[in-house]
């Protein structure tokens, strides 16, 4: 499938879901002529129409766009790294409240640097520890922003 064909299909699909949701919104005007429905309805139609035209244009061979290549096969490694980063990144955010700033940040940095800078454990350890300590120093100590405090932070004088 070509890039424009996929884009068109995505636009029609998302626009469709959005439009249906917009239609189901309650009619409520309270002195507001248009209400909360009209604008989203127009946006949904815009997405669907643009997507449809894009798909129709792809039928003409001379205007066809390049074949889409997400690299799912050729760059499988990249996708594995992206998915891992996504999962670990979300987990990082979830544990920050309970574990504080320093431990999750160090662990996250160790993870991401190991992923990118593979096989250099010492370098990555230094990077992870230095990064979390420097950012803590800059944000919590120097700029006085409040950061989640875990048991390590509670032992610190600042």
């Amino acid at each position: 499938m070509t890039m424009n064909l996929i884009t068109g299909i995505i636009a029609v699909a998302i626009g469709g879901i959005y439009l249906v949701t917009a239609m189901l919104l309650p009619e409520m005007r309270m002195g507001d002529r248009l209400g909360p429905k009209l604008f989203p309805t127009l946006v949904g139609i815009l997405a669907i129409l643009s997507g449809l035209v894009l798909v129709i244009q792809e039928r003409k061979p001379e205007r066809r766009s390049k074949k889409a290549d997400f690299g799912f096969v050729t760059h499988r490694q990249v996708w594995i790294k992206i998915l891992l980063t996504t999962v670990v990144g979300i987990a990082y955010g979830l544990v920050m409240d309970s574990l504080g700033f320093l431990i999750p940040t160090t662990l996250f940095m160790l993870f991401i640097s190991t992923l990118i800078n593979r096989g250099r454990l010492v370098q990555n350890l230094v990077l992870a520890v230095a990064f979390s300590m420097i950012t803590y120093g800059v944000f919590a100590v120097a700029l006085k922003l409040s950061l989640p405090r875990g048991f390590i932070e509670q032992m610190l004088p600042f």
Binding site: Y18, V43, G44, L46, A47, S50, V53, L54
Partner: peptide
């Protein structure tokens, strides 16, 4: 058209 689609997504 792709620009329009991007605008529509942003507005959504």
């Amino acid at each position: 058209l792709k620009g329009l689609i991007a605008i529509a997504f942003g507005l959504m």
